[in-house]
Design a protein around this nucleic acid. Structure first.
Length: 895
RNA sequence: GCCGGGAUGGCGGAAUCGGUAGACGCAGCGGACUCAAAAUCCGCCGCCGCAAGGUGUGAGGGUUCGAGUCCCUCUCCCGGCACCA
């Protein structure tokens, strides 16, 4: 055994050992409990980044720990290989996306292997391979048959110069990223998957996922957005034709306060009204410009224009004008809303803006408890209406005069007034009564509405899974027959940014119609890459099967632990759940949910340094290029460039990214310190769910600790401490204390592992080493305590730093392979103590401690506490009014 | 804008059920070893104070013998918002 810790050498040796023994090959074995541990597979962007290292180390710690606990473990790895960055790289370097992708995969695979992850590489897959994506196509055809997949128009970002569809991220400040042209909204046909058909189950089944973080479930529930409300219609007549304007609202109780209606620019009524109204037509066109992103829709200035069309209030018969509003979404509900400015913030803002063109705001709800006679309308502290009444008599007639210029809006639930027969009703009673009346008139009913929209999967892009359809002049759109699958994507195209290169590939485009045999044209749209990632976990469990999944899937599925970034909390995870349910309904699988437990890991952050360039752009600097400037308190206030000492801006802490130049290359780290140091730092720096801040000196600290572990192991070997010894009947006090310390930390480590709080597991390991290094040099049973302690330390640490622990375990003769060792459990005999220390408080303030026998009862503890010197001093001669004893923890004297 | 999350020393973070705030580590300071440096080892280390003690978990209020933890109000930061993955 070498004296010096040499990570490169021991890591290579350990990896060679795992390879030769096929340690991580997963074989189905019904006699053992299984543990399927899956980390979200990477997009092969070029090289691993720290987020990957963190994600996969978390998975590896769980995998190795469960292996040692006797589980049959599967940890696979693959590549989310289709996607936009490959096309961007192609535009830049004129390399086919396929070649770029495969090169990246080869490099990143080697990086993953050098980190020593316990991966079964025989199950590796890449979603850009026909043997994988043929099953995307196959399942898509099944969905088409079942009516889950269907065709509809979709709104996309259109670059008029490049004549191409842009992704949201390719739209910068409303302009195309390459051309700078103003982006337009355009409607084109596309394919959708009916995820809304599963909305109810996707929502209710969240309750069957106790192993998911509550916040992720809440986010999904809000995304699905079930709301119960009333769908009703305003009758109207336009150009002699009678029609109904349908709207949906969750606030039917405010229906008597409607002052206008608003429809989306794409609404048929808007289109009809615009005929012969050039000004309105122009406004509708304007609404169709700009972003398709919800965030932009929500933050942009609310604009509208009257259509001149009046509809009839379904209950009062009053005339209500219809407006076109840029804030009304065609894709939600009916694409039309009733507007009640008095009780809806958005309507209120709109009404204030168009004050002079709209009727006065009509309030119809007051807070519960309001009465005309009372002096104050609202109980103090509720404050929503309170400002309105300053200097005004709080009475009904005044409220009716309430006007939008200056009155705030009351959007909470309350009691109806100013609403005719509904006066005095509360929220629920009012809605029930109003819905019943609308129903009686045949103009509406209660309805459940979902925020969730169907999943548009068509992408007008090359590097994706071809949608298996054929367009025939005679037969229309015809599905590709199963026996002709997969529709293989040619791998030698080089996109240039001006549209889908498949359109220039006659060998791909031209085909014969499966129905009539005439020449036909292949669909060139490809699938959203979220399709690829919606079922890869099931394919891992059936690697290489000649069908989509085979009979190995039921053994492994569902995934016992899924690990990935919080940024996937909604889309990827929801789509995977949906896909699973579709597969289940096709009887391909029998489970309802793909991921039993979910861990969402935080992002890896680093400092950001930049300065403005002469041209007005921003230039970023890597952290190693700068020196930090701190104020007296030690806070970072700025930075200077190492090269020339010039001052640059400190941009705080942000996610590592190529564009900000604040990434740290894992490769350099592995080469300098070894994989174990990288892994240890990642686990130690913060708990998995939180963000992790990069720190070079933190890495140094991790390395220092591993060197100490090695040195301690070396000293045991030098000192001839045998791996196993018997303990004497009773240990001397100092050795008993040491042993207790080790087992206490083991108990803590096991508890924290259960919570997946690996940073404190690492801390516990460090505390064990700190204790072992201070071990007495002599004493009866000394070697036994130290050998036992170190063997516990190695096992606890081995999932985090497997190479180091593997080497020391065998070198010191603890066993042939630490992977085969039993996971350690704390022993009661090591934890017992005769006397315990309790915190002493007087009037809630800590004033010292008292020692009492371990079995002391409450009376004895009280007596000991009151009698103590510290208690006497701070009680200042007053008698104890009350003594609170928290068993095993503290005693508080109230004087 | 909407939805979700977060804020604790100079820094990363710990505190399991409301019970010693700051474990463990980094940085810093002092010392040992060395011709010297690196590496390593020992000690100190929230803030104010000579000390006794006081004070302190983003801000303000509340509940409690006792609050980082529970309740109310607010500020700032981060993630998602359906064509980035």
């Amino acid at each position: 055994m070498q004296e010096k810790y040499n990570p490169q050498e021991i890591e290579q040796a350990a990896q060679a050992h795992w390879q030769s023994t096929q340690s991580f090959r997963a074989v189905e074995d019904p006699t053992k409990p299984k543990y399927y541990c899956l980390s979200m597979f990477p997009y092969p962007s070029g090289k691993l980044h720290m987020g990957h290292v963190r994600n996969y180390t978390i998975g590896d710690v769980l995998t190795r720990q469960h292996k040692m606990r006797g589980y049959n473990v599967l940890q696979p790895m693959g590549w989310d290989a289709f996607g936009l960055p490959a096309e961007n790289a192609a535009i830049q370097n004129k390399v086919p996306p396929a070649k770029w992708t495969y090169d990246n995969i080869a490099y990143m695979k080697q990086q993953l292997q050098s980190l020593g992850f316990a991966i079964d590489w025989e199950r590796e897959l890449a979603t850009c391979k026909p043997e994988y994506y043929r099953w995307n196509q196959w399942l898509f055809l099944r969905m088409l048959e079942k009516g889950i997949a269907y065709k509809k128009t979709q709104v996309v970002n259109w670059d008029p110069v490049d004549q191409t569809v842009l992704a949201n991220e390719q739209v910068i400040d409303g302009r195309g990223w390459r051309t700078g042209a103003l982006v337009e909204k355009r409607e084109i046909p596309g394919y959708y998957l009916g995820i809304t058909q599963y909305a109810d189950e996707l929502l209710s089944a969240l309750d069957t996922l106790p192993g998911w973080p509550e916040r992720v479930k809440t986010m999904q529930a809000n995304w699905i957005g079930k709301s119960t409300g009333v769908r009703f219609a305003f009758p109207y007549e336009l150009d002699g034709k009678k029609d109904l304007l349908w709207v949906f609202t969750t606030r039917a109780d405010t229906i008597m306060g409607v002052t206008f209606c608003a429809v989306a620019a794409e609404h048929p009524l808007a289109t009809r009204a615009a005929q012969g109204n050039a000004k309105l037509a122009a406004f509708i066109e304007e609404c169709k410009q700009g972003s398709v992103m919800e965030a932009d829709m929500a933050t942009m200035e609310k604009k509208g224009m009257p259509t001149g069309v009046f509809v009839e209030h379904p209950l009062t018969g009053e005339k209500v004008e219809v407006w076109v509003g840029n804030y009304v979404l065609m894709s939600y509900g009916e694409g039309a809303v009733m507007a009640v400015p008095a009780h809806d913030e958005r309507d209120f803002a709109f009404a204030q803006k168009y004050n002079d063109q709209l009727p006065p705001i009509k309030p119809v709800v007051v807070p519960e408890g309001f009465s005309e006679a009372s002096d104050s309308m609202v109980p103090a502290g509720q404050g929503l209406i309170a400002p309105v009444i300053q200097g005004q008599p709080p009475n009904k007639s005044w409220l009716i005069d309430w006007h939008h210029d200056w009155a705030p809006c009351f959007a909470s639930q309350g009691m109806l007034f100013n609403s005719g027969k509904y006066d005095g009703l509360g929220y629920e009673a009012a809605i029930a009564a109003i819905a019943a009346d609308l129903k009686a008139k045949g103009l509406g009913d209660t309805q459940v509405q979902w925020r969730l929209r169907d999943w548009g999967i068509s992408r007008q892009r090359y590097w994706g899974c071809p949608i298996p359809l054929i367009h025939c002049d005679t037969c229309g759109t015809v599905p590709v027959p199963d026996e002709q699958l997969p529709v293989v994507l040619p791998e030698d195209c080089v996109p240039d940014g001006s549209g889908n290169p498949l359109l220039k590939r006659p060998d791909f485009l031209n085909c014969t119609c499966p129905k009539c045999g005439k020449p036909a044209r292949r669909e060139t749209d490809t699938m959203d890459t979220f399709v690829d990632s919606s079922w890869y976990y099931a394919r891992f469990a059936s690697a290489g099967a000649p069908t989509m999944v085979d009979n190995r899937a039921p053994y492994w599925m569902p995934v016992d632990q899924y690990i990935g970034g919080i940024e996937h909390a909604i889309l990827h995870l929801l789509y995977s759940r949906f896909w699973t349910k579709v597969m289940r309904d096709l009887r391909l699988v029998s489970y309802d949910e793909p991921f039993a437990n979910l861990l969402t890991q935080g992002m890896v952050l680093n400092h950001i340094f930049s300065r403005r360039t002469d041209k007005g752009g921003i230039e970023y600097f890597a952290p190693e290029e700068v020196d930090l400037v701190r104020d007296e308190g030690g806070h970072v206030t700025g930075a200077t460039l190492k090269a020339d000492g010039s001052t640059i801006d400190y941009g705080g802490i942000g996610t590592m990214s190529k564009s900000k130049r604040n990434g740290v290359d894992p490769q350099a780290l592995i080469e300098q310190y070894g994989a174990d140091t990288a892994r240890f730092f990642m686990m130690f720096a913060s708990p998995p769910e939180q963000t992790l801040e990069w720190s070079d000196s933190g890495v140094e600290g991790a390395y220092r600790f591993l060197k100490r572990v090695w040195a301690f192991g070396h000293s045991l070997q030098e000192g001839g401490v045998p791996p196993r010894l018997t303990f004497p009947e009773k240990l001397p006090a100092d050795l008993a204390a040491l042993r207790r310390e080790i087992h206490l930390n083991l108990k803590q480590a096991n508890y924290d592992l259960g919570k997946m709080q690996f940073n404190t597991v690492a801390s516990a390991a460090m505390k064990m080493l700190n204790a072992l290094e201070k071990a007495p040099k002599t004493g009866d049973g000394r070697d036994a305590v130290v050998a036992e302690g170190f063997s516990i330390l190695l096992r606890v640490l081995s999932p985090i730093t497997p190479h180091l622990c593997h080497a020391l375990w065998t070198e010191l003769g603890y066993g042939a392979d630490i992977l085969a060792a039993a996971w350690p459990e704390p022993l009661d005999e090591a934890l017992v103590q005769d006397e315990i220390e309790l915190v002493l408080q007087v009037n809630g303030k800590t004033r010292g401690s008292v020692r009492v026998p371990a079995g002391a009862d409450k009376t004895a503890i009280e007596a000991a506490a009151v009698a103590s010197e510290a208690a006497q001093k701070f009680m200042e001669g007053k008698p104890a009014k009350k003594v609170v004893v928290v068993p095993g923890r503290l005693v508080n004297i109230v004087a």
